[in-house]
Amino acid sequence: MAAAIRLRFRRRSAIPGFGLALGYTLFYLSLIVLIPLAALLLKASGLGLRGIFEIATEPRVLAALRLSFGLSLAAAFVDSIFGLVIAWVLMRYRFPGRKLLDAAVDLPFALPTAVAGIALATLYAPNGWLGAVLLSFGIKVAFTPLGIFIALMFVGLPFAVRTVQPLIAEIDREVEEVSATLGASRAQTLRRVILPMLTPAMLTGFALAFARSVSEYGSVIFIAGNLPYVSEIAPLLIVIKLEEYNYAGATGIAAIMLAVSFVTLLAINLLQAWTRRFAHA
């Protein structure tokens, strides 16, 4: 198994056209991703490093960044765990309604985020179905950071499920059986055999769910309460700067978010490379 995977990653391509494909890749990436991001950085560079630093250390911006990144990490973490469980159940068990459940996982992708936000706000508002029940236990969800957390879990879940699903499909049952016949307990099989194979994919799912959550605006805005310093997310602060016709300030925050996201994603990628090596050593 390990050898097969290593082969897949190290194998030389048998298909010609590397130059053409690379050229196309560079052109396409530049057009769709790099040029817009360069425009953003160019606009932000008008502020100078000092200006960006001042924006980054403004207490309100700091509070918004802390909220956005903190909740996104937390939501992505919970999503990865439950995403793994959901993917496992969907791939390993046959039960009526499985196909329907499988399709439902993608709904957060397809739903306009504003609709999701309004639905969640209705559900979790103090007079909503779930909100009323939770309130009787003294838990407020809508219009608090907890509401933001729930909205972010909602939008991130499909990434966590869909990234591990194909890998689970590839794991042969024999692998588990071999592990069992060699004397491993069920927990050992899970911890030493199954999880190491899935960790890189889980990290990918984590990274995608995290990236999606950081940039999320539509669904959060309806359930957040949007109070400065408390439940104001960084993307809203960008919109507020735009309302002040402060394009430089808006791009400044955007550039900071971009930098933090880039560093975080890079760290996740490195971690992934490390776990992959670890898994197959």
Partner: peptide, 21 residues
């Protein structure tokens, strides 16, 4: 005393009327 700061007037109306805030 403001528990929710909506981004627009219609949003605030909804928060008050539909969400009961």
């Amino acid at each position: 005393n403001v528990p929710v700061l909506d981004t627009g007037a219609r949003g605030a109306t909804n928060t008050f009327a539909q969400r009961g805030i």
